[in-house]
Amino acid sequence: MDISKEEAQGSLEQVQSAADRTRKTIASSYDSYLLIMWGLIWIVAFLGTHFFLAWVWQIWISLCGIGLIVTFLVSWQQFRKAKPIKIPASEKIGWRIFLFWSLLFAYMFIWLSILRPRHGIQINAFMCTTIMFAYVVTGLWFRSYHMLWLGIAVTCITLVGFYLIPTDYYCLWMAPTGGGAILGTGLYTRFFWK
């Protein structure tokens, strides 16, 4: 079969266009919206903690509570509708992911009760890195490399904040960097990923 250079070029452009549209479909799945939501929650919660320290538990419990409810409802709805891209055995994976996160939170509180951290920054850094551990693990499971690298990046950001940033400014550091990284990843995969 012989074709001209122009026809070959046109074919390659069609290939690129179809591949881009497919990746955009993946990117615009619900994951990006949840990342945007959690990024905003981190930013608001950390800033709220910095400026209204006396309300720290109310801020985190209420915002994270809302976040968890929305995450569960969105995930449940998507599970029922089925995502456009199916990973083998994903129907069974949905419940396993839910159990994994539930167990992780349960173990988090068990570990905290055993380790008895000395101050709030320790508790916060512990919880942030544990959640990022879950991002890294799920990123590896599903080959969601943006989740994998996001988990690693925010872990590093948290460690920098814990070890290098003065305690009084930890929350001011975490809001734009940690929260911003999560928010930025969600925005990028939703609107700009091709």
Partner: peptide, 25 residues
């Protein structure tokens, strides 16, 4: 060609829904 381009853009083992493929293409 477009069908194969869309499918190869996915990771091996990942499957795309027929209806979404129809919309994409």
């Amino acid at each position: 060609l477009q069908i194969m381009s869309a499918l190869v853009a996915l990771d091996p083992g990942e499957q795309v829904d027929f209806v979404y493929m129809r919309k994409i293409l």
